[in-house]
Each structure stands twice: as C-alpha cells, then as structure tokens.
Amino acid sequence: MRKIVVPGELLSDKSPRGKDIIIENGKAYATVMGVYDDQKNSFVPLEGPWYPQSDDLVIGIVEEAKLTTSIVDMNSLYKGLLISKYSDTNMESGDIVEAIVRDVDETRTAVLQRPRKLFGGKIIDVKPTKVHRILGREDTMIRQIEQSTGATIKIGMNGRIWIKGGDVALASKAILQIEEEAHTSGLTERINKMLTEGKNNK
C-alpha cells in the first residue's frame, strides 16, 4: 500500500533510509510530506529542498560576475560558484548557465564546473522533488516532450528548467502537469495523450 504521509508521521519499525527520515526510539518518522510504500519500505518525498551533490546538473543565473569567480543563483539556499580555472567561458551577470556540481562545501557553496551558456528561452522553477519524474526513467519522459514539441529542454536537479524553440508553451504545460501529478500512476500515457492533443489543436 502506498500512502501519503506528513511530517511526524510514523513510517515503520524497519526503518527505511533517507535524508527526509528521522529515527527515534527505533522508529522511523517522515520529516517532509511524501509517499510511503510499506511493501517496498520506501519513502519518496513530495516536498522539500534540493541538497546539491557532486555531478548534479544545475540551471542557474549568474548574479555577479567577477574576474576569477562568478556567483550563480540556483533558486536555493546554496550559491553556485564558477571559478575561471575550471572553465574558459567568460561569464556576465544575467547569463543563464548550465553546469555540473563539482563539490559542495559547508558554507552553502556548490562549486560548479563545465559551464555552458544558454541563450534566450523560457525559465520555469518546479519543486526539486519532482525533477526525477519529469526526467522519467533514463530520461524517457523529457525526450518524449522534446520530440513532441520540438523544444530543447534542460532540466536542473535544482528544479530550474530551461525551454527553448518549438512549442514552448506546450512543453512547459506538460512539465507543470508532471510536477502536479508526479505521485500518480499512468502518468506517461496521460502526458503522451496531452502532447498529441496539444499538437493536433495547433
């Protein structure tokens, strides 16, 4: 059985693991809203912040560009830091950038590497907990949206998404629908249907 749980709700005695769970007196409790599956003893958070990890792809906006370093807004408590020795791209404030987290230090800074500038396009912010579902298993969901809409889409683990070209409106509509319905079954079919209908209505 899958059930929606709230902070403080008992999960099980055979504690699942995860950052969003606390153990007290041998019992596991959720700390954020999520879906608990008692057969798999798994917990998937529905709400909650993004905790950056090495190799996460992020989409950010350069807030402040200096000669040797640039500070990147990632819609997060964490700031991205681009150090020019890891990149030969010159940054300017206001640039949209796609980059990889190299490592994270205790001062809420994620050092970024391999930055690429993105030009133009639409930016939307979604809940970071829903990013995996938007990507789909082995990125199948997002490929499908790109194919159907002709848009190029970049998805940051920080929940920031960049869309350009093709039918941007349909692509962002599909993404927002996945965000809303991420915890349901049959989502792939519904999104496919919605994309087909959206195309035919043009």
Binding site: V6, E47, G48
Partner: peptide, 12 residues
C-alpha cells in the same frame, strides 16, 4: 504552511 513549503520537521 511549513509542511507545504517542504521544511523538514520532526512533527506537525
């Protein structure tokens, strides 16, 4: 509102 914002809490 705290739970809706996804702020981790040990209880509600």
């Amino acid at each position: 509102a705290m739970a809706d914002a996804g702020i981790p809490m040990r209880d509600l």
